[in-house]
Design a protein around this nucleic acid. Sequence first.
DNA 1: TTACTATATTACAATATCGTGATATAGGCA
DNA 2: TGCCTATATCACGATATTGTAATATAGTAA
Lengths: 117, 117
Amino acid sequence: MRKKPPSESQLADIAGIFAILADRSRLLLLNTLRESPCYVTELCRKTGLKQANVSKQLGLLKSAELVTTQRDGNLVQYSIAEPMIFDICELVCSKIERDARRRIQAFRTERTIAARR
Amino acid sequence: MRKKPPSESQLADIAGIFAILADRSRLLLLNTLRESPCYVTELCRKTGLKQANVSKQLGLLKSAELVTTQRDGNLVQYSIAEPMIFDICELVCSKIERDARRRIQAFRTERTIAARR
DNA sequence: TTACTATATTACAATATCGTGATATAGGCA
DNA sequence: TGCCTATATCACGATATTGTAATATAGTAA
């Protein structure tokens, strides 16, 4: 999204990246890879996800170029290709926390007003 | 996503925000609202989306607290509640452009190597 | 009240996505 | 070759999401 209005296909591309990030399992995998690069089996163990699921989600992450792979004999090591995604997650997190605080504040205010009646 | 590993419910919350952003129509609405606050009918006209769809997507955006509303008689004006989303989109955009450049570069290199044979 | 406009909601078909069991593929080693 | 492990892919049921036509609701004004 930029100063000039985005084209149809740009919107679709942007939506596509968000769609990749809009999944609990994939966020879990990304967050695990954030600590250090991992083999698929390690990711299965660390996340508790089944192997077929891990491979499938890693495939999607790779097709979006959010992770990269390196073959090491029989093993495949996955790494983060876009550290930027954690900046994005940080922004989203801060929004969620802000919303939560605002909701608590609104609840307190409401209770105070109710108590005055 | 932060230094301490995110909990299950935090991951779900983050994924939820991304899911809201992972749709062409909603991005289009947000981008239109970026110019200025709009009434629903204006948004229909500016985006070309049908009224039922616009109301539905605005409802989702509002439930995620990405937009706010203000009633004005018979009309409802929608505004951006989280300018931060455009920072996020900017990051995603720059990634997409970087990927595109890298792909073009890789294609050129490949062609050069092929030409040498 | 009635009529009109703006917006929201409902119901549904079409489509997409998630997770999984089963299976395929690929590499290492005997 | 055959066997084992690691990873990827296929096929499918379950579930979720999209856009839309039809309908409901809310506000204004006569």
